[in-house]
Structures are given as structure tokens and as C-alpha cells.
């Protein structure tokens, strides 16, 4: 009961925060609110028993997305100067949309209904057969990495292409204002370096974040976690370091050639697992053929592809962050 009340509270907060985002014309406020929005969303996912999703939403939605928005804000504008015209068409469109959905979902199964169709068809099969076929405790990992491994491969390529896109859009540094002295450079761009307390405390956190990321990577079979969460966490550690020490030092820690190599290498590793399983006589991404024992093969396959996913996501997030932060120094 208490969870239901808490859930209702969180859901209502979501709407309040969203309205706040809509109403403010200060973009900085809007971005911070959207970070809070994601954090509330993550808490809500946790209540709904989706631990993996909650972790991902917290790291990616509240963490990395906010940092990227802030990076873009620093390079563009601080205030929303939209004129308040023509609001009728959007208002009608979105009300119609909302009306249709509310009308439709009045017949939907209520939250947590054990007799809902979703709990009767495919899902029980995953829950029943995972111990026998794949033998990892976290069923989400089993579905993600093996049963629907092809989707996950596609997802890795989505982040890969995003990284490529950001690099080709922001990659070329324009050689302007190179007359500024190095010191001046640092003062302008690396404000946090001169704030002692955040710098010292923040730096102490970095190794723990990275360590936690590695734990999430290799513990993903047993608890919530996996390559996506781990990659985002490790990247978050590096991004925090770059924020504290300034972009140039961050790029010394993880050079750009390395992070972009990681991106391609991760995607390549994942595809290679699929191609090797084809060469060994199985279907694409059929890990069972990788070893003489099918279950052992599944373990091996999941370990390797999760490593590939982790590599790509780490690389992508760091590369994109660097691309934005370097654009700031002109």
C-alpha cells in the first residue's frame, strides 16, 4: 500500500516538473528540471520492479543527458525567446492525442493485474526457461543479451551512429581565437579547477564511480546491471573528472583516439561474436555453439557481448562529451 501511495506521489511530481519545464523561459532551469524529471522517473521505475531500467534511466537520463544539454547550452543560448503565438494548433493537437489515449486506456488492464495478457504469453516462458537454457539469475540480462540479442546489437549500432554523427558535426575544431594565452584559456573554460572543495571531494568520488561501473559490468548476470549501465557509469566517472579538472586534462586521461577506437571496437566485437557463431554452424548470435556445452556457450557469448556493449557505450559517452567540451574552447 505504501508503495502505491509513494508511486502516486512520484507520478504527480513528474507532471508538476514537466509543467515547470514548459513554463520556464530560463533554459538552464529547464535543463536542471529535466534532470530531476529523469531522476523521479528512475525512482518510479524502481517501484515498478524494473531495477535495470531504473539504473539506466538514472545514469543516462539524469546524468549524461543533463551534462550534454548543459554543454549545448554553454555553446548556444540561455533563454527561450519563443514568441507566444500560434498556441492553438499545438494545444488542440496535444489535447486530442491525450484524449485518445485516455479513452483507449480506460479498458486497459489495471497496474499489477496478474491476469493481464502481458503476464500470460511470452513472459512466463522467459522466466521458466532461463535457468535451464541460459542459467543466469538476472532474466533481464538473459533476454537482453541472448533471446533478443539482435535488438541489442541494433541498439549498439544506434549509439555508434550517434557518436559518428556528433564527431562529424562537431569534430572539426575551428582555428579561431588562438591568440588567447594558455592561462587565459584555462581560466575561461575550467572554472571548477579553482574551486578547491568540489575539486577535491569530486576527485575522490571518481575512482569509486569507475569501480562501481566495473562491478555493474561483471555482476550484470547476477544483479541489475550490464554493459549499458556500466558503460554509462564509467563514462560518467571520466566526465566528472573532466568537469573538475577541465576538458584538456580529461582528454589527457582518455585521449580521443582511444575513446573513438573503443566505440568501433565494441560494436565490432559484438558483431564478431555473431559472425563466429555463424561460422561454427549456428545461427547469427547463437552463443550455444561457441562451446561444447550450450549453457556454457551462452555464458561465454553473454560475457563477450556485454563487454562489447560496455566498451561502445563508454567510448560513445566520453567521445560525445569531449566533442561538446572541446567545441567550447575556441
Amino acid at each position: 500500500m505504501i508503495t502505491i501511495v509513494f508511486s502516486l506521489f512520484l507520478l504527480t511530481m513528474l507532471v508538476i516538473v514537466a509543467v515547470g519545464i514548459l513554463r520556464t523561459d530560463n533554459l538552464f532551469t529547464a535543463v536542471m528540471l529535466s534532470g530531476i524529471f529523469s531522476l523521479i522517473m528512475a525512482a518510479n521505475f524502481f517501484i515498478l520492479d524494473a531495477a535495470d531500467v531504473a539504473l539506466t534511466e538514472a545514469v543516462i537520463g539524469a546524468g549524461i543527458s543533463t551534462v550534454l544539454f548543459l554543454g549545448a547550452l554553454a555553446l548556444t543560448a540561455e533563454y527561450d525567446r519563443s514568441p507566444p503565438v500560434g498556441t492553438w494548433v499545438p494545444l488542440l493537437t496535444s489535447s486530442a492525442l491525450g484524449g485518445v489515449i485516455i479513452f483507449a486506456t480506460l479498458q486497459a488492464p489495471r497496474l499489477g493485474d496478474p491476469n493481464a495478457v502481458v503476464h500470460k504469453h511470452v513472459a512466463p516462458w522467459y522466466l521458466d526457461r532461463t535457468p535451464e537454457l541460459i542459467d543466469v539469475p538476472n532474466v533481464v540480462t538473459a533476454v537482453l543479451a541472448s533471446f533478443r540479442g539482435y535488438d541489442t546489437l541494433g541498439e549498439v549500432f544506434v549509439v555508434f551512429i550517434a557518436c559518428i554523427g556528433v564527431m562529424s558535426l562537431l569534430g572539426r575544431v575551428r582555428p579561431r581565437r588562438d591568440s588567447i594565452e594558455e592561462d587565459e584559456f584555462d581560466k575561461r573554460t575550467d572554472n571548477l579547477r579553482h574551486h578547491l572543495i568540489p575539486r577535491v571531494v569530486g576527485k575522490m568520488l571518481v575512482p569509486f564511480i569507475v569501480l562501481f561501473g566495473l562491478y555493474v559490468q561483471f555482476h550484470g548476470d547476477f544483479g541489475p546491471g550490464g554493459g549499458f549501465q556500466a558503460g554509462a557509469l564509467i563514462a560518467a566517472g571520466v566526465i566528472l573528472y573532466s568537469l573538475l579538472e577541465g576538458g584538456p586534462r580529461g582528454r589527457e586521461l582518455v585521449p580521443e583516439w582511444f575513446s573513438s577506437l573503443l566505440v568501433a571496437l565494441g560494436a565490432f566485437t559484438y558483431t564478431c561474436v555473431g559472425v563466429v557463431s555463424m561460422a561454427m554452424g549456428g545461427r547469427f548470435l547463437d552463443y550455444s555453439v561457441l562451446s561444447h556445452d550450450p549453457v556454457h556457450g551462452q555464458h561465454m557469448g553473454i560475457l563477450i557481448i556485454e563487454a562489447g556493449v560496455g566498451m561502445t557505450v563508454t567510448g560513445v559517452m566520453i567521445t560525445i562529451f569531449h566533442a561538446f567540451s572541446r567545441r567550447g574552447i575556441r
Partner: peptide, 17 residues
Amino acid sequence: PALVVVVLLFTAPITYM
């Protein structure tokens, strides 16, 4: 059936690297 798309996915990272 798988190769028609796998060939492309496999080559993309190589092309980039």
C-alpha cells in the same frame, strides 16, 4: 537471410576504424 544485413553491420566499424 542474416548475411544481407550482417555484411553491412560488420563492415561499418571497420570502415570507421
